[in-house]
Design a protein around this nucleic acid. Structure first.
Length: 907
RNA sequence: GGGUUGGUGGUCUAGGUUGGUUAUGACACCUCCUUGACAUGGAGGAGGUCGGCGGUUCAAAUCCGCCCCAACCCA
């Protein structure tokens, strides 16, 4: 057995396990879950000489901590667990950590809700303390939930994304990227959530359909392209957002818009607000909706930003950070955007500027967290530069193995479509502070010392007495915090213990290509990095995975993952996304109240990796039945082969050798499939081999025998089956293992034993299959005759090469006398049909193939030794096969004539 | 609007990259069977021409084109 974690804690009492009675998962499953956690079964064993080749590290994206698990968690964690359990058994030491993502708006809002407080009322550190307290409760519940799914996480290796160690690391990352020249601070238009009052990034927005009104507004024309306009002439602009009128800076017309071409070069007056704005030509105008003449406001949408930059337009800010109208809006100042909209529509109407208001459906961008419509504001933010290195990031993606391969294209297209650098600053109170102060005199940014991290500029002093640039003595702390992705993208570094080490000497493992003046970046566990596997959903390829690659690559010069396993989303039974509004949500709690965890895992294993995956009660039932089958078969094995570790007999019976040789093939095949994340194929192949071949065929034979050879094969096969099933069905396999195989010498879990390897048995596989075919024929015969399957048969003659299997056949089928002969003296043979090998005759005879088929169909052919003359064509023997039909004139009944096999029953 | 992925018996699904005889399995369905563990079991059966159209080829579920439908990503 392999490294045995539980051996250290041998005094922990191993739960009692017996093979009596029925299998009761509701009692068994929690019992082992507790045992595994208590005995640290899944602890990562750091060896004295860390070696990247003998460990397997998984970088799990930390889930947001909030309340209950959903099916996506169950599914995703379980897939990760298959990988971890397989590798743990297959010689690797497995690093399977767990992270809690409690750094972000989600946990901040959770805390406010839970405690009935507002973050504004507390100092940042104080509020963060409260967050941690609230999250701790949720995390405990979450941990318990995950443990109850038998996820084999090393619970000594967990982290929280807000904990001080991670804060330090996140700030170190910021300083390092800045020193490398990868970060900058800039005042520019940003996507802004007026509800959360923070900048957000492109990926934090989502589409939302919204009912609104489209308003046609008449703008008095002052000049058209040819000079002064006629008095009273207007142009019409359709907008859903009249509250932006005070921010209007220009009007655009499409170059192909002949009807409005005369306006270009002119000016118009914005109704109610009076500013005169130019009319400009630009092909970004959408000709489909509205009047084809559009206003540009600073800023209503992204096109406005593009126009503002391309045409060097003035800036008119009418909406502030909280979504309130500014003094630019005149009498509407202080109103919310919504109230202002209504008031302005009313006033436009009463002054005769409103031509029409009609209902309209359109898509707006909202903040994914709070569903509030975003605004575009000009603010000062920190950015990570990315657009200049997209080629390198693409190459980094190419270096990873993608499972499934096709998911790489998502990554590729995302990078190719990048338009913004990464805005990493957020105007939130909770979060990891950006460790910077600014000189009040010259604006110089003063960065924290690495040794002092983590710091909070709002509470801590800067590392210098005065500004190093101008000598100024007063500074203003940065109030902003990092985007949560700025930290979540560091998980490979968090997991492998990346840190800045002041005193690192030359011999220490260097984690960074850039060696600063003193100290360097080091890894506590360099053998873990790069991580072997990153499992995750396909929905987060574009930001989480991408940002992780960017950050880790910039810090270490290495691609952080060897491979990526991408799972799909869990759908309902009708293949529709689960959502509260549809009312089709199924929760793990509901499922597990009805089904064993192992059955849920069986369902989860039914996935083709990368595809969306419907919830299927059928599969859970099938899983439950498999548990029972495994249990019952184990009981029979235990009866037939009470000795658990028998010596191999010298003369292994043909049927036993055949079973073990087939098992060898299965071991090899299952291993390959697990190693390449083909869970569904592994599961189904293992189930079929166990159920059909082992239980239905072999066990039925074995239970008629009582010899050492059978007992040996039974024991070896059973032991192997348990291990092969262990990653999928950890509870039932553990229970059976403990009941039958664990003894004082092998105390501990099946999950820390060695993965099976082929034992090198060779057998006449063809003869074995012939024998199974004979048994199949006899079963069919009994069924058709209305006989019980254990009914006696007087005499059976078999004409086939099943020599070594004769006893197996007669035992299993209760045959009194079994005669095996190679020839078929009493059997007459006639040709039933000719099978053509199209792969040979196709390329050779081309369109003559039809003639050959027609000739055979009409009986216009002749067999001449090895050759077949069909019509005008002569085929050589490799091109065809004669299918014969047997007739039997002797005593008894001929029941099977498949291929060259014949079975005669005399009863 | 652009892109990606998928569309195989009633349901879910394998196969598709390397075109080749009877398209895989599970669930459901029908018939039969209490076999030294399992009726949550066993044996057998019926059911599809592979979204639609067209093309390449002796031969297409598989390759190519167009169309339809669905999901996702990006505008």
């Amino acid at each position: 057995m392999s490294t045995d974690h539980a051996a250290d804690t041998a005094d922990e009492s191993t739960p009692e396990a017996t093979l009596d009675g029925d299998y009761d998962p509701s009692e068994v499953e929690p019992r082992w879950q507790d045992y595994w956690v208590e005995t640290d079964t899944y602890a990562y064993e750091e060896s004295d000489i860390p070696d990247a080749d003998t460990q397997f590290s998984i970088d799990t994206p930390p889930p947001t901590v909030s309340g209950d698990l959903h099916m996506g968690h169950l599914y995703q964690f379980t897939l990760q667990d298959f990988v971890a359990r397989y590798h743990r058994m297959a010689k690797d030491t497995t690093y399977f950590p767990f992270g809690y993502d409690d750094n972000g708006i989600a946990s901040e809002r959770l805390t406010e809700r839970e405690l009935g407080i507002r973050h504004q009322d507390y100092e940042r550190r104080e509020f963060q303390e409260k967050c941690r307290e609230v999250c701790a409760d949720y995390e405990a519940a979450f941990t318990e939930n995950v443990q109850s799914l038998a996820i084999s996480v090393d619970w000594d290796n967990t982290y929280k994304t807000i904990e001080p160690r991670v804060q330090r690391l996140s700030q170190l990352s910021f300083l390092d990227l800045y020193e490398q020249g990868r970060e900058y601070r800039q005042r520019a238009p940003t996507i802004w959530c007026p509800d959360c009052e923070t900048a957000i990034s492109q990926v934090e927005q989502e589409d939302k359909d919204k009912a609104t009104t489209f308003n046609d507004i008449a703008f008095p024309l002052i000049e058209d392209g040819n000079g002064a306009a006629d008095d009273g002439e207007t142009l019409t602009i359709s907008t859903t957002r009249p509250e932006l009128l005070p921010a209007c800076v220009s009007i655009f017309v499409h170059p192909d818009d002949d009807a409005n071409q005369h306006l270009v070069g002119g000016t118009a007056e914005v109704p109610l607000f009076g500013q005169e704005v130019p009319i400009i030509e630009d092909d970004r105008v959408d000709l489909e909706t509205g009047s084809g003449v559009v206003m540009c406001c600073t800023f209503g949408d992204q096109t406005d930003i593009e126009w503002y930059q391309a045409h060097d337009l003035p800036l008119r800010i009418a909406i502030d950070e909280s979504g309130t109208m500014t003094d630019r809006a005149g009498e509407y100042e202080g109103l919310s955007t919504e109230d202002a909209r209504e008031a302005i529509i009313e006033d436009l109407d009463s002054e005769g500027h409103l031509l029409e208001s009609r209902d309209h459906q359109h898509t707006v961008q909202v903040h994914e967290r709070c569903e509030h419509e975003v605004e575009y504001l000009v603010t000062e933010q920190w950015y990570v530069e990315m657009l200049d290195r997209t080629d390198e990031y693409l190459e980094a993606g190419r270096e990873m193995e993608w499972y499934p391969e096709k998911m790489f294209s998502r990554y590729k297209h995302w990078i190719e479509g990048l338009e913004w650098d990464w805005c990493i600053s957020r105007q939130r109170d909770s979060g990891i502070p950006i460790p910077v102060w600014y000189c009040d005199d010259c604006g110089e940014a003063i960065f924290a010392d690495r040794g002092d991290l983590p710091v909070d500029p709002l509470s801590d002093d800067p590392p210098v007495e005065s500004c190093p640039a101008c000598g100024g003595e007063s500074v203003t702390p940065e109030e902003d915090v990092f985007d949560t992705w700025a930290t979540s993208s560091l998980t490979p570094l968090i997991n492998s213990g990346w840190d800045w080490n002041e005193d690192a000497d030359e011999s220490a493992e260097t984690a960074d290509s850039v060696d600063a003046e003193s100290g360097k970046f080091t890894f506590d566990n360099p053998e873990l990095y790069p991580m072997n596997l990153r499992p995750q959903g396909h929905d987060i390829i574009s930001f989480w995975l991408f940002h992780t690659i960017v950050k880790c690559y910039e810090h270490t010069g290495e691609v952080p993952f060897e491979s990526v396993m991408v799972n799909g989303m869990v759908l309902d039974e009708n293949r529709e996304a689960m959502s509260k509004s549809k009312g089709n949500v199924v929760t793990p709690a509901e499922v597990l109240a009805e089904f064993p965890v192992d059955a849920a895992r069986y369902w989860a294993a039914g996935t083709s990796i990368g595809d969306d995956f419907p919830f299927k009660e059928n599969d859970l039932e099938a899983g439950e039945r498999l548990l029972q089958k495994l249990w019952n078969a184990s009981k029979l094995v235990d009866q037939l082969a009470p000795e658990t570790d028998p010596a191999e007999p010298d003369d292994l019976a043909a049927i036993d050798r055949w079973l073990l040789a087939s098992l060898d093939d299965t071991v090899e095949s299952i291993t390959e499939k697990l190693a390449s994340y083909e869970f569904s194929k592994a599961r189904d192949e293992l189930r079929t081999f166990f159920w059909s071949t082992f239980c239905d065929d072999y066990l039925e034979i074995a239970k008629q025998r009582e010899d050492d050879s059978a007992a040996y094969a039974l024991s070896v096969a059973h032991r192997t089956f348990l291990k092969l099933f262990a990653p999928f069905l950890p509870h039932v396999t553990e229970e059976i293992w403990q009941a039958r195989y664990a003894d004082s010498a092998t105390t501990g879990s099946i999950h820390t034993t060695d993965w099976p390897e082929p034992r090198g048995y060779e057998a006449d596989i063809a003869a074995g299959e012939q024998a199974m075919a004979v048994i199949g024929a006899l079963r069919r015969y009994k069924t058709e005759q209305g006989l019980a399957l254990n009914a006696d048969l007087d005499r059976v003659e078999v004409f086939a090469d099943v020599d070594g299997f004769a006893d197996a056949i007669s035992g299993a089928m209760h045959v009194g006398e079994l005669v095996v002969s190679d020839d078929a003296p009493e059997i007459g043979t006639e040709i039933a049909d000719i099978d053509l090998d199209y792969s040979i005759i196709g390329p050779k005879y081309g369109d003559q193939v039809g003639d050959i088929e027609a000739a055979i169909g009409q009986g216009d052919y002749e067999i001449d030794g090895d050759q077949l003359h069909a019509g005008d064509i002569t085929l050589e023997d490799e091109a065809f096969e004669v299918r014969e039909e047997h007739t039997y004139a002797g005593e008894g009944e001929l029941i099977e004539t498949e291929g060259d096999l014949a079975v005669v029953v005399q009863n």
